[in-house]
């Protein structure tokens, strides 16, 4: 079985972004970029399936600027076999990404697609579900456990109030939640080996997809900053403040 994994190039999760002074966007110049943390978990899950003999090949796909090659290389160093960059400098909304991935999936015919549940830049949490709709694949979103049993995937999902397990016909689609696994670090020898692994580049035009805008960002603002309050010296003072000043208890 072939597993296809998507990885998005995003701002490093430790960086606090700033809004540009003209309020058109956030400022990403000279900001550290990295693989979306949920995509790291997706790569890890795919590599583990390969190590367990369940998957035969792990193909990693990223869509975006040429620099996204870095994130594909990282995935290759973590154990993926082959990379595909869908290169474009246009703004990609989730539905555009889902349409492009649909074309890649037509070509690659994976048995399982693993994606992050959410990109930490857009915070959309929608691309996987949209891809499910366009391909007709069943979806196991917010997965904390994935088991492949024959031609079925058993996916445990993080839902309100606890966990839910669903059985999906394959090919199926999974989006990862944080507890699915603990991603490994790439070793130096694997980073060197990754440089020789194949990476293809294609474009939206080659895939026959026109990028259409579904929304327009009118402006971007900095949220109101919360003012730090005071330090209290004791539990007594805290209780007093909560009762008599804030009046919340």
């Amino acid at each position: 079985m072939k597993v296809l994994v998507t990885v998005k190039r995003v701002i490093d999760y430790n960086v606090k972004v700033r809004v540009k002074s003209d309020n058109t966007d956030v400022d990403l110049t000279n900001v550290k970029m990295a693989m979306n943390p949920f995509c790291e978990i997706a790569v890890e899950e795919a590599v583990r399936l390969k190590e367990a003999g369940v998957a035969s090949e792990v193909v990693v796909v990223s869509l975006g600027p040429q620099a996204a090659q870095e994130q594909i290389r990282t995935a290759l160093a973590l154990g993926a076999d082959r990379g595909i960059l869908v290169q474009t400098d246009e703004v990609l909304e989730s539905l555009n990404v889902a349409k492009l991935l649909t074309k890649v999936i037509e070509q690659e015919q994976p048995g399982l697609v693993i994606m992050g549940k959410q990109a930490i830049d857009s915070d959309n949490n929608q691309t996987g579900q949209m891809l499910g709709a366009l391909t007709g694949m069943a979806q196991g979103t917010f997965a904390s456990e994935v088991k492949i049993e024959g031609d079925k995937a058993l996916v445990t999902r993080e839902v309100d109030g606890g966990l839910q397990t669903v059985e999906l016909a394959m090919p199926a689609l999974v989006t990862t939640d944080l507890r699915l696994n603990e991603p490994r670090y790439a070793s130096l020898p694997n980073i060197m080996k990754a440089k020789k692994k194949p990476m293809d580049t294609t474009t939206p035009e080659e895939l026959g997809v026109t990028i259409k805008a579904h929304s327009e960002v009118l402006r971007v603002d900095t949220p109101e900053e919360r003012q730090a309050g005071i330090k209290v010296a004791s539990v007594d003072e805290l209780v007093d403040k909560l009762k008599n000043e804030a009046k919340v208890i």
């Binding site: 539905l95 949490n125 917010f142």
Partner: peptide, 19 residues
């Protein structure tokens, strides 16, 4: 909620619209 996040984007794509 997790339930709406699971369903709505899938419905949006079926309608060929964004979310």
């Amino acid at each position: 909620t997790p339930e709406a996040k699971n369903v709505l984007p899938r419905a949006a794509a079926l309608l060929d619209v964004g979310q």
